[in-house]
Computed example of a mutant assay.
Amino acid sequence: MADDLPPLWFPPMSSDDSSDSSILFFQNLIEEAELQDTGTSNRRRYIERQREEGHETLMADYFVEDPKYNEDIFRHMFRMSKRLFLQIVSDVEENDPWFVEAPDARGRKGFTPLQKVTSAIKQLATGNTPDENDEYLHMAERTSRECLEYFCDTVCKIYGPEFLRRPTNHRYPTIMLEAVASQDLWFWHAFAGPPGSQNDINVLQQSPLFLTERNGTAPKCPFYVNNHLYKRGYLLVDGIYPSWSVFVKSIPYPHEVNEKKFKRQHEAARKDVERAFGVLKGKWGVLSRPMRARSVKKIRNVVYTCIILHNMILKDDGKAIAPVHIRDPPVEPALDDTVLGELLNEDTHWRLKHDLIDHLASQDLPHLLADSDED
């Protein structure tokens, strides 16, 4: 007990110090030591949070026949419709026994699934600390943290195969045409590997972006540009990436009009992707806050959950790019030694870039013409 107490500091005494002030000083030290001892020893103070009142308040605010807050306010607070929220509550309760209401060790009723899911979604929406809703949901910080962890893990298991899937052969031809039409883009699963593996050039050869190409399980998406056939789709990247056949880089200093058009369109398309992630961060505040206190697995589950919920909301609102998911037939992985050479082919990289420049120049795009004239 004595080892846990902070060292005492005695102020220098003078003849003018009164005995009353000295007594008051030591009383304050004793009170501070008792408070610290209360927080670190087995004699911690128990707080009766009245979880039943929290459930009743939540029901009266949103889920009774005539709630305090209407559907618009509910969507603003929970980022989704009440119909979708209740469906998620039902699904997680059915698939994870942790969300089932059960009595605690004292025989009292535990938190309801509504309280647990509400705590998790509010943490995702605001990005605030787990104890933020203690006064509203009557839930301790530790329980709120567990709600978020169990919720993210369960959502990824239930909805991941549908809402965190890769594009298929059926969707590749039209995915980009449909995606750029809306700012609320559908997020496709393209970064399932280790953190940083898609941006570190030293490990690009083993990146999940290209591993499926090498083992023959990637969807087929051939296309023609200027009567030239290209077997794989391409990625818009900046100048730091190597000159691979699947990378299309911008032109740093364009001189010709066609090159200026290409640079303008290239930058606009990349900004669409950045804007899409800005929409995701604006909807789920947890993505804008530091998450260093969590493990890599928990951080990944949080990010995936935000993407899954985003796609679920789009489908619930009738804005899904692919409301019907047509699966590709299963393909057995078969490593092809020639694929890596095709991915690293610089000749294909430059030919694709020039073909895209010529193709874009042949299109009647007034906004590019105006921008090029101004340049």
Rank of each mutant, 00 (worst) to 15 (best):
T217Q: 15
F111L: 15
D131H: 07
G193D: 05
N199C: 15
A125P: 13
T217G: 10
F99V: 05
R214D: 02
P173E: 03
C147L: 05
N215A: 01
W98A: 05
L209A: 15
L209N: 11
I175R: 03
H138Q: 14
R165F: 00
S182R: 12
G127C: 02
C221P: 00
W188G: 08
D131E: 13
G196E: 08
T126F: 02
L204S: 09
R145M: 02
E213P: 00
E101G: 13
T174I: 14
K116I: 07
F99S: 11
K220V: 04
S144Y: 01
P219F: 06
T174E: 11
R214L: 04
D104M: 05
D184H: 12
V203K: 13
P113L: 09
F187N: 06
Q183R: 14
T143G: 11
G127Q: 02
F111A: 09
F111N: 11
E146Q: 12
I158E: 08
L148T: 01
D96T: 02
G193Q: 03
S90R: 08
L185W: 08
H170G: 00
A192C: 07
V155G: 09
V117F: 05
Q123G: 01
T154M: 07
A140H: 03
L177P: 00
V92A: 04
P113M: 10
R165N: 01
N215W: 07
I121D: 07
M176L: 14
P103T: 15
T129L: 02
Q206L: 13
F210N: 01
K157V: 01
Y150S: 04
A192H: 06
V203G: 05
A125R: 01
D184N: 14
F210E: 00
T168V: 02
G216K: 07
E101T: 10
V180C: 07
K122Q: 14
E101N: 13
V203W: 15
A190G: 11
G216V: 06
L148E: 05
Q183V: 09
T112Q: 09
F99W: 04
P167I: 00
Y136G: 00
P208N: 00
S182N: 12
D134P: 13
K109W: 12
Q123E: 07
F223L: 03
E93N: 03
V180H: 12
C152R: 10
T112G: 03
S207R: 03
S119G: 07
I158G: 09
Q205T: 14
L114I: 02
I121A: 10
H170S: 05
N227A: 11
T212A: 13
D104H: 10
V203I: 15
F210Y: 07
P173G: 07
G127I: 02
D200N: 14
Y136P: 00
T168L: 07
S182D: 14
A125S: 06
T118V: 02
I175E: 03
L148H: 01
K122R: 15
R145V: 02
F163H: 12
W98Y: 15
R106G: 05
N133H: 09
Y136H: 08
A105Q: 15
C147T: 03
V92Q: 02
W98M: 12
L114K: 10
D153C: 10
T217Y: 12
R106K: 12
R214K: 10
S182V: 05
D134I: 13
A120W: 00
I201T: 10
V92I: 11
A181Q: 15
A105M: 13
E146T: 12
